[in-house]
Design a protein around this nucleic acid. Sequence first.
DNA 1: TCATATACGGAACACTGTTCCGTTTATCAA
DNA 2: TTGATAAACGGAACAGTGTTCCGTATATGA
Lengths: 193, 193
Amino acid sequence: MSTENEPDRRIRADAQRNEDVVLAAAKELFATMGVDATVRDIAAKAGVGVGTLYRRFPKRSDLVAAVFRHEVDACAEEAATLAALHPAEEALALWLKRYTGFIATKKGLASALHSGDPAYAALPDYFRARFEPALESLLSAASATGKVRTDVEPYDLLRAIGNLSVTSDAEGTAHTHRMVDLLISGLRQPQAS
Amino acid sequence: MSTENEPDRRIRADAQRNEDVVLAAAKELFATMGVDATVRDIAAKAGVGVGTLYRRFPKRSDLVAAVFRHEVDACAEEAATLAALHPAEEALALWLKRYTGFIATKKGLASALHSGDPAYAALPDYFRARFEPALESLLSAASATGKVRTDVEPYDLLRAIGNLSVTSDAEGTAHTHRMVDLLISGLRQPQAS
DNA sequence: TCATATACGGAACACTGTTCCGTTTATCAA
DNA sequence: TTGATAAACGGAACAGTGTTCCGTATATGA
């Protein structure tokens, strides 16, 4: 229901190409200039007109949401990659660090998310739907090795890291990383209370 | 250093009057329409031109900050009033409820506060400077009656209520009030762990 | 009463997000 | 290969912000 696959009408090649290039430009500008980057700047960086951008993303917030979903996907998919390349326990730790990095880049979005804009209403669910299974599989694989505690709910862990990342000012990310390290080493003591 | 008192030049009477009326209009519009209320709307409601408004508040955010400080003052001053009218233990409980109500109206501001706008940078300190002594005196008076625990830091309590108030959606304020009630009754058990 | 520093009002400016529409182009059947 | 045409493109124009400017009005103190 999301992307039309029916043979009725295929999306035109140039349209698809422009959608990709706009997403890439938006992602980069959001990262460097913050979520307040201008629609005009994004269109210019993508090398398209604003009309083209608006055809695919009728509201500015649609573009923000699309970039967000893309980045959630990228981070979630890395769980499988890490699981394939590392021992379960290590993969878990590596992904949690990766996730912490992801959260750190979402400072600007946090306020937008709670802004009541209906365009963002679905994002929290998307966030959970993608991340919870990803962490779940890492966590259960790690638990199976016996070296990691088994009594931790994936969603609690996701939230805990999110809350630890709510720091007001500079030097905060260092603090966050120390606390997350603590959390990870806590995980490594199987079943201690 | 904040408001000129020196006899050099007194502020003109009409200017003072307009400042008051603008603040009142802004306070009401922020309450009813949210912090996104328009500068034009505020000026219109106050019955002044935008130029007049900008003379006193050079940035929109200055106006937001001024209203915020006014409301912090009002809430903080109520601590003394309640202390004069009620037994210490009761005054504490009443003020904490009042404070919870204050926090509830600051949803829209929360995102602005963390937005990095330098106009808001001083607000957290102002918040703490006004509220911490207010709660401190209520708390120590209540502790003196022996009916309230003595091992609670005022700032921790302020923050705890603030965090409890971070609810995502509807039905949230009911939940917040239940949790704050719990907190208050917890305070009433002297020195239990 | 008058000179003047101060303050006032609101048109105009700059910069947003968004819409509109004449022009261009990818697609596909003949 | 070639048209016909639906789809997509670009960017000027619109609407709604915050902010500035400046000619006019007025409170103040001598």
